[in-house]
Nucleic acid binder design. Structure first.
Lengths: 225, 225
DNA sequence: AAGGTTTCTTAACATAGAATTAATCTAAAC
DNA sequence: GTTTAGATTAATTCTATGTTAAGAAACCTT
């Protein structure tokens, strides 16, 4: 588990220390928080691959924290594990609903925990990521291909990202602002016509009608059969 | 278990003798070492199929020896069994991390040991681990060979690993990041052009078309008949 | 240990193709 | 009909990768 980032959230310093020590030894980058607020803050900044989250926290409930974390794009695929004391059985039921991947009952056994994380991480990596399909065009994120009418093609990165974004929510109008933010990042300043050019390329390749202009606002993907 | 090479490593001559006698009777080629250094030396030269390794050695720790041995490509598939005195429970935990196949608590019972080895060897042979085949190229991970059009060749380690990675999921685009992580490990900082050079070597050897570049993303193996 | 060989990595440069911009044109909205 | 956002095109700049050669490191052989 070398190189992964892990965030440990618990209000008991002993537990945090123990776990931190263990995972540092495995060459993971360890972050820790003692409460929910802090946890959210760190997670959003570092987007760790693994998050261990105590259910009982002084400020926010662990499950609420979890819910909050899952809203962040960069944490969608993180592994979130609940830690709960023996009595708090409810976590089991609620846990999955809220989006945790698993839960561990304290006292934590390091070996078990480590193994669990390893297994889940492996499984995660194997899972095919992002595969979007509409009536007449489909994207395969693993292979970075776009298929239309059976013809598969590889398109440049920016075009691919743009198409993926629009197709991820068909019919939703993405404001130009929003597109810039998602694909170019917030800080980047890129000319006014840049998006247009990429849109044009996509239309050229997959037909004028797949992307509709909403003047003054932005663009949307249209699934026209 | 006829014809196999076995290396016995222990600092107690009695034990070595006993085991040696036993395995010679089974027509195995027996080698022995009294310390870690010697063990490594012999193992690298003889690459025995089976290695019995005492955890407590006068010089190097048995587990370190094991780790060292596993680095040798000819010993990757050897059967390594730890021998440990009853008290030394830690070997159990650390053992499999380090790459041992099993461990035996002393006093060794010959019949049990022999049976264990037999079973493990059989299982090993049954699962020719890592054997990837595509239409016109195939990898034999056990023997570290690559065959194309009937011609079998041995290629350098890094190239082999890279090819294996890409071929393990044909058509899947491996991001450069991902490749680095898998083959070089996250901690390693390796130059930007290193991957390219290895890719180039592979294309040189097996044809330009086997690996396709996905610009801005990474590479993928293509099975083109 | 010395010498030769192979493998790995790096640096430097070349190049193709991608991203961006600028300039100009078009059409929708008022 | 004027205005303005967007479309179009081509030129320009950038960037990722390809390529080569050379040095370092690992590996073998004697």
């Amino acid at each position: 588990m070398i190189g992964q980032k892990i965030l440990i959230v618990d209000d008991e310093p002993d537990i945090v220390d123990l776990l931190a020590y263990n995972f540092k030894k495995q060459e993971m980058a360890v972050f820790s928080a003692n409460n929910g607020k802090e946890a959210i803050e760190i997670a959003k900044k570092q987007h760790p691959e693994v998050i261990l989250l105590d259910v009982m926290l002084p400020d926010i409930d662990g499950m609420e924290v979890c819910e909050e974390l899952r809203k962040d794009r960069n944490l969608k695929n993180s592994l979130i594990l609940f830690l709960s004391a023996r009595g708090e059985d409810y976590s089991q039921i609620a846990g999955y609903k809220v989006g945790a991947d698993d839960y561990i009952v304290k006292p934590v056994k390091l070996k078990v925990l480590t193994e669990k994380i390893r297994t889940l991480l492996e499984r995660r990596n194997e899972e095919p990521l992002g595969n979007i399909t509409s009536t007449n065009i489909s994207i395969d994120a693993n292979r970075y291909t776009v298929s239309k009418d059976g013809a598969e093609s590889i398109i440049p990165k920016k075009e691919f990202e743009l198409l993926t974004l629009l197709m991820s929510k068909p019919e939703k109008v993405y404001r130009r602002e929003e597109i810039l933010e998602q694909i170019w990042g917030v800080k980047t300043f890129v000319g006014d016509r840049t998006i247009d050019v990429h849109i044009r390329k996509l239309r050229e390749k997959f037909g004028q009608t797949i992307i509709k202009t909403v003047k003054g606002i932005g663009y949307k993907f249209e699934d026209n059969p």
